[in-house]
């Protein structure tokens, strides 16, 4: 049986158990969130033992070189020793500059940070609060242009980061940012022309907005269509901004739908709407973001409509 050595104590792994689950079974409070190898909240450094490639899925090369890995997907068969990477090794200090209410359960958090250039719109970052709590949020704006990083945070009842933000976060509070992470962003160095379809529900809008603004800023040639969905009318936010953006850019259109409307939005299932939009998906790339269940469904819809799997970019918000 393999053991995990963490902070000078040894923990016995059960057969097939991952490192994070083992620590939690022993009541160790180790940072984590998605528990599926996506969010990178649980980042750890291997200090002895053998690393396996699949423990480092999605990590950037500099992290891999330092033997960083994700305990929630690591299932060692031999003894290992691990430590939590120091904040100064991985993250950058930022300050909360502004908190703006966007809807009944979504706020925009604006952060100032020294180096704005590294934070690519559409990618996500790890927000680390003063208690060491770590959660992922997507970059919703053009940081260099705006002078700050904007995140859209859905406030969950009883959510740990949600509650911290609602009750404890103060203006100018210091936080740490790690990242950015992910493949879902606008990348078109050869200035190719293609159509973009972006679909998502709730705060899935955040990365999509970042991508749209990036594409427009780089004078994207091809149509850009955003489809934002929600459960009820008030789940739709940023509408005025999006309508103005559509007015000012001929190649951008903004569509929205909700499952149950009181008359202010089209009532429809977002998958059905996406299917309609993709009736003839020529020269088209799809960007899909948001809560896990809907984004899985939307990805499959886009794929079955004929978009190549390599042309579907997505981030699932796994909670």
């Amino acid at each position: 049986m393999a053991t995990v050595n963490y902070e000078n104590k040894f923990y016995l792994l059960e057969d097939g158990e991952n490192v994070l689950a083992c620590l939690e079974r022993h009541n160790i409070d180790y940072p984590s969130s998605c528990k599926s190898g996506v969010c990178q909240s649980c980042l750890a450094q291997l200090t002895s033992g053998n690393i396996q490639e699949n423990w480092q899925t999605g990590l950037k090369e500099t992290y891999k070189a330092k033997n960083y890995f994700l305990p929630c997907i690591a299932k060692p068969t031999q003894d290992i020793a691990i430590k939590q990477p120091g904040l100064d090794e991985t993250s950058f200090p930022a300050a909360i500059n502004e908190i703006i209410k966007l809807s009944y359960n979504v706020v925009a958090v604006r952060l100032t940070i020294n180096d704005l250039a590294s934070w690519i719109p559409g990618q996500y970052l790890n927000l680390i609060n003063e208690n060491g709590l770590i959660r992922s949020y997507s970059i919703a704006n053009l940081p260099i242009e705006d002078g700050f990083i904007e995140l859209h945070m859905k406030l969950y009842p009883q959510g740990l980061m949600s509650n911290w933000l609602k009750h404890h976060a103060k203006l100018n509070a210091q936080v740490q940012l790690r990242g950015p992470i992910g493949e879902c962003f606008y990348h078109n160095p050869d200035k190719k022309s293609f159509n973009m379809i972006l679909a998502g529900t709730g705060t899935g809008l955040a990365p999509l907005l970042g991508i749209i603004r990036s594409a427009l800023k780089q004078n994207h040639s091809g149509n850009i269509t955003l489809l934002h969905g929600g459960c009820i009318d008030t789940d739709l936010y940023y509408q005025e901004f999006l309508r103005t953006l559509a007015k000012n850019h001929k190649n951008f259109s903004y569509l929205c739908c909700v499952l149950k409307s009181n008359g202010n939005a089209i009532e429809a299932d977002i998958s059905d709407e996406l299917k309609k939009l993709l009736a003839t998906p020529e020269n088209c790339k799809a960007y899909i973001c948001g809560p896990e269940v809907t984004s899985k469904k939307l990805k499959t819809t886009a794929f079955l409509a004929g978009i190549a799997s390599k042309d579907i970019f997505s981030d699932s918000f796994i909670i």
Binding site: V293, K296, K299, T300, F303, L304, A308, S309, I312, S314, S316
Partner: peptide
């Protein structure tokens, strides 16, 4: 081949229910 094959699998009622809720990537 993978896209063509997987599209066929997802569109075939004999087998597609085994893939309900799985992540495409």
């Amino acid at each position: 081949a993978v896209d063509i094959f997987y599209r066929k699998v997802l569109s075939d009622d004999r087998v597609n229910y085994f893939f309900d809720g799985v992540d495409m990537d």
